[in-house]
Design a protein around this nucleic acid. Structure first.
Lengths: 241, 241
DNA sequence: TAGATTGTTAATCGATTAACAATC
DNA sequence: TAGATTGTTAATCGATTAACAATC
């Protein structure tokens, strides 16, 4: 009956939550499905359906109470749990992530980083130590960490992934260009370990952009090139009328 | 009749291309739809449909010629164009991207970076200069750059985005947590500028992981928590034995 | 020829959208 | 009450999957 919210829904829920926090700082007390829809770029019906799916109730004429909404979305998204992650790989990208402001703002904490290079190890480092990769299993088990970031060179990706799964990590943000899949790696005969890998494949993203941009340029009658021909033929409107 | 390949298709095409390059180095000469399907995680029918959509022909019994395939996919994905991008924001993440190996490997070149901090500016830098953000419009127009990366603080995101659109950038990889939308910003009365923004929202990705991982933990009969209850229904066995 | 694989059409599935009854 | 907004059901849309005829 009640289907679990899928990935797309969850993503929207997180977006609603961000918008709501902003609206609250502006003094809003209640909010309507169309407000949220506009902010996130979906129709009001989607918003209501998303909320109904996770059983957040509204008021037939009064919309949704913003405090209740923030509270409930936080609960559903697991915001009341401490959001502690470990990071593996202290190269350029890894180091950048260690100081990533957004994490603090969203209550996400990197509680330890790991590297194989002895020169980088610094157990006294504040606010989080950099430890030898060999220690990851012990650390993860001790702290019950479930989510990890992989920012190592491609060549080390698979091995690091394996050891993280072994240690108990079940959610991965993967910055390598290696497609890490749990299926196959984690399945055993009768007891599959389920884990989730989000691949942040920057190279693929850029390739995609080139395709889309080039496409558009090739389209007859739709070029905004140097020669003065302006963008597109048909106005495509979304908001208002 | 011929629908344009959508985003999902394009993403797969790029993945096929990567696999094909690897297979080629291994000496493969031809490849079948099920080979590619396995590698990318889709059914053979999807592969064939993708290729038919962009009119890449196969041989009724001989599969696809790997050289032709690489060539044609490259053409479709715009690989024969120079893939030149600009980067705005030379903080931690921006700097990391400037040395990102994957870019070279995939033929993507950051031909210039921009920052507003005078201390960071270095027009002589090799292989790409760091210039004042004020110069971006001129540079972009001169070089005909269409794709850009935004790695500035959230507070600067909207302004930077605007000036990049003005300069002629039409494809964006956005590392800020501000949801940059072209619609509204770029529409003019009868001639919308179409651009594409890929948001790499690291915070959202992590939140998502927490949701999914927590979900799984709550599921009755399937917990791998601290209290001694082992992974899913039964303890997995893999290498141990 | 017989077997294998493509290319395409039809069937299925799921998610989004639209519509509207319930009700505050 | 009348108006507005939710919550839910039905209709639409698109993408994935399955099936199979064409053919090398």
């Amino acid at each position: 009956m009640d289907h679990q919210p899928n990935k797309a829904v969850i993503l929207r829920l997180a977006k609603y939550l961000r918008v709501l926090k902003k609206l609250k700082t502006l003094g809003f007390v209640k909010v309507f499905s169309n407000n949220l829809g506009d902010a996130v770029g979906v129709t009001p019906a989607v918003v209501r359906k998303d909320f109904s799916l996770i059983e957040i109730p509204g008021n037939k004429r009064g919309g949704y109470n913003i405090d209740v909404l923030i509270e409930d979305l936080g609960t559903v998204l697991g915001k009341e749990h401490s959001q502690e992650v470990v990071l593996v790989g202290c190269g350029k990208i890894g180091s950048a992530l260690m100081e990533y402001r957004e994490f603090q703002k969203e209550g996400i904490k990197i509680i330890a980083a790991f590297d194989s290079d002895p020169a980088k190890i610094d157990p006294q480092r504040q606010p989080a130590p950099i430890l030898d990769i060999e220690e990851i299993a012990e650390f993860v088990r001790e702290h019950g960490v479930l989510v990890g970031i992989i920012a190592v060179p491609d060549s080390a990706a698979a091995a690091v992934f394996d050891s993280m799964v072994d240690a108990g990590i079940r959610g991965f943000l993967n910055f390598t260009s290696v497609d890490l899949k749990c299926i196959g790696k984690c399945d055993s005969e009768d007891c599959p370990i389920e884990c989730t890998v989000h691949n942040v494949n920057i190279g693929l993203e850029i390739e995609n952009l080139f395709y889309l941009v080039n496409m558009r340029h090739k389209r007859p009658g739709c070029r905004d090139t140097d020669d003065g021909v302006q963008p597109c033929p048909q106005p495509r409107r979304r908001s208002a009328e």
